[in-house]
Amino acid sequence: MNYLPDEPLWQWEFIILNRTILFTWLVMGFLVFGSWLITRRLTSSTKMSRGQNLLEVLVLGLQNQIREVSQQDPGSYLPFVGTLFIFIVVSNALSIVPGYQAPTSSLSTTAALAMCVFVAVPIYGIAQRGIASYLRQYISPSPLMLPFNIIGELSRTLALAVRLYGNMMSGSVIGAILLGFVPLFVPILMQAFGLLTGMIQAYIFSVLAMVYIASATQVNHGPGVKENDLEEDSRPPQTEKN
């Protein structure tokens, strides 16, 4: 088993096709096709298909979660945060399929997702508060805090990427190692444990992303306060990971 998901399977010039991209497309295709299949026959009556019921539960759950975390209307955040959660959940859940390698076990993927969050935070913040108000949070309560705030922004993005990557990669690696000398039963348990970890990591990643965005969009609170909140919010996942 190859544990380097970014290793090219096919390459032309600088364009490469590796397992990360391939399985990402697979997950994307699964999600989009499944969504299209279900949403092409939607009904507004109370009698609906099980697929529609599942999607409504999912979307409603995401909306409630976003509303709970951000204390704001989830409308504009749902596509971004919801997609993060669904993509990571499905990517991690498909790990039980033999031969599949979760895209989230690639640092490139987790870094790309973290980068998306890193970019989305100022976009949402500026859209919500205006550029001046948003930038002012970096020099509050004192301009001396500017470097620390910037470092905080970068470090939490890095933490996002590494946390998800570390959990997923370690799960795959431990499973593969155990398969080597305890081939019966134990790998199954590890797979089940990996599923649980994958769900938790997806939840942590999307909730943290929402927290970062919410901290950037809330006017009344300074970035220092939000930073503390974020750190507190990011602690439990770290302990769960360990």
């Binding site: 364009i15 490469i16 497309w25 999600l31 969504s35 790309a112 980068m115 998306c116």
Partner: peptide, 19 residues
């Protein structure tokens, strides 16, 4: 892998739009 990194960003954005 920076190509994969970029591709995954694009993939994610496309997925956001599609979903």
């Amino acid at each position: 892998d920076w190509f994969t990194f970029t591709a995954q960003i694009l993939n994610f954005l496309v997925l956001v739009w599609l979903l």
